[in-house]
Design a binder for these strands. Structure first.
Length: 492
RNA sequence: GGGCCCGUAGCUCAGCCCGGUAGAGCAGGCGGCUCUUAACCGCAAGAUCAGGGGUUCGAAUCCCCUCGGGCCCGCCA
């Protein structure tokens, strides 16, 4: 008997023993031939209150949410993946022995099966008028409070199973997330993109500037890092001739957490040979529209989700990075400023990034300060200064710019796309420049990627999207932890 | 790293300002009830007030530290 057992758990555990003593297995193996609650609801349609459906009995199974006893009658609410159905329990139909046994052993939170006839109660509630009830798994620990559910945020995150079993809204959110991922795959598959899986364990994590998680291979006796982006392996596949590829998977960044940053997050990256960022924008807008349609179907009763769906429906606002920054900040001639002048402006805007940072970093800080907070509606920001973006191709007509777009919503970034840089010598030069500005040797650059480019990467466009943030935006969820089933929490 | 807020029974919450030895609802126990749906009625039970230290005759309440969490700011091309 566990030493940390509460009196409630002791009581419930004693029911397990008494069930066994009566020859009733509290944890049986299977409950065959069950139908879902929604199927019973269908069979109850059109039945008058106080009547039963003709035909054979049905079997239902799920979690007992509530039990209302009335002496020789009782009502129970059974919840399964499809919804909720009431059980109507009467001693005259079950027999006194079975009825009394049920009342002795059943508690809210138990997993139970029932067999009986679809029926509508006198008060009009669709039900299963049960002939028998079977314990399928006795719950020793009590469920969260039946009306308010689990409110404690920490408990919801640390013990997601309790959140899910208590909250149909939480289940609906994660069901929606799964369907959105499915929609992404269907959309890209239909556009002849190939889903691939690249490595998560790498000698050097690259493709972004974040601090990686570090680990070690015993067999190789080699230090390894967890990937921080998917970009460079996927571009290697373009060199290899796969032409249209995407990956949907986790990246890891060893940095602070907040409402839009998780150390472990899901990314979508897609690369498309012989196409440019205009093509990618059309593909992205099509994808967003499809995702919005799915959310409208999946969460019709959620006003924040319906608002999110509206925002993700084309057409979208577009602003030019430089024009918008100059307009919002009142600063003109930004691209002609010296690095020192840009640093001064960034300092004036409150940034504390290191002095040795590249001019691109200062421009990003200025944009974050003056523009991002205003990007509350879904907006495409285009044609960034070349200095901000080491992996993008220079703009074909705007000097000192690259062909790039970023999507923002509610002040945070959703994704980022370029016409990809495929000139190996220019790529190598930009990597070296970046390294010099960071002044830290742990960001060794991916030399093999440059070697791959020397073999020729087709002209191409690529995109990276923060999937968790897309789910947040589409469902109107304010915190990234709420859209991740098991977010990282401090061990205790 | 800085600021603000939170932690009381298995769960949801009062009590804290203004110090006097912890209160309710749900869940659980016992009893009643054959149409309820946050069922209802009666009885009894359930709490190292996150942890540690201090002030005080007396601390859930005031002060300090620690732990955990939330929000905001900073940092994170």
């Amino acid at each position: 008997m566990p030493v940390d057992e509460t009196p409630l758990e002791h009581e419930r555990r004693s029911k397990v023993e008494r069930l066994r003593a009566e020859g009733r297995e509290p944890y049986p193996w299977v409950f065959p031939d069950r139908v879902l609650a929604e199927e019973v609801l269908r069979r109850c349609e059109g039945l008058a209150p106080g009547t039963e459906a003709a035909g054979p009995p049905v079997r239902v199974a799920g979690r007992l949410k509530a039990l209302r006893l009335h002496g020789r009658t009782a009502f129970a609410d059974l919840e399964d993946v499809s919804g909720s159905i009431q059980l109507l329990l009467r001693s005259d139909t079950m027999g006194d022995g079975e009825f009394d046994a049920g009342m002795r052993y059943l508690d809210p939170g138990d997993l139970v099966g029932a067999e009986g006839v679809p029926a509508v109660s006198k008060r009009g509630e669709p039900s299963v008028h049960a002939r028998s009830v079977t314990m399928l798994a006795k719950a020793i620990a009590p469920p969260p409070e039946k009306f308010h559910g689990l409110q404690d945020v920490e408990e919801r995150l640390r013990r997601r199973y309790l959140d899910l079993l208590a909250s149909p809204e939480s289940r609906a959110l994660f069901r929606t997330r799964a369907h959105l991922l499915r929609e992404v795959r269907q959309y890209l598959d239909a556009s002849d993109f190939l889903e691939v899986e690249t490595a998560t364990l790498l000698p050097v994590a690259s493709g972004a500037a974040a601090t990686p998680f570090e680990t070690h291979s015993r067999y190789l006796d080699a230090d390894l890092q967890l990937r921080i982006a998917l970009e460079l392996p996927l571009k290697r596949l373009l060199v290899g001739g796969l032409e249209r590829v995407y990956e949907l998977g986790k990246s890891f960044r060893n940095e602070d957490m907040d409402t839009t940053h998780s150390p472990e997050f899901t990314e979508l990256e897609a690369y498309w040979a012989y196409a440019d960022y205009h093509d990618m924008r059309r593909l992205t807008e099509g994808l967003f529209g499809r995702l919005a349609d799915r959310v409208r179907e999946l969460l019709p009763d959620s006003p924040p989700a319906q608002e999110g769906a509206k925002e993700f429906t084309p057409p979208f606002a577009t602003v030019d990075f430089v024009e918008e920054l100059e307009r919002r900040s009142g600063i003109s001639g930004l691209l002609a400023k010296s690095p020192e002048e840009l640093r001064g402006l960034a300092r004036a805007a409150g940034s504390t990034v290191p002095d040795r940072s590249t001019p691109g970093v200062f421009l990003d800080k200025l944009f974050e300060h003056y523009v991002e907070p205003h990007l509350q509606h879904l907006t495409f920001v285009v044609d960034h200064p070349a200095a901000t973006t080491p992996l993008a191709k220079r703009h074909r007509s705007k000097p000192d710019r690259v062909e790039r777009f970023e999507m923002f919503y509610r002040g945070f970034e959703l994704g980022n796309a370029y016409t990809e840089l495929n000139d190996p010598d220019e790529q190598e030069a930009r990597f070296r420049e970046q390294l010099a500005s960071q002044g830290e040797d742990r960001y060794a650059y991916d030399a093999d990627f440059v070697r791959a480019l020397r073999h020729g990467m087709p002209p191409a466009t690529g995109i990276g999207i923060g999937v968790d943030r897309i789910v947040m935006g589409l469902t109107g969820t304010p915190s990234i932890k709420e859209v991740i089933l098991f977010p990282l929490v401090r061990p205790r």
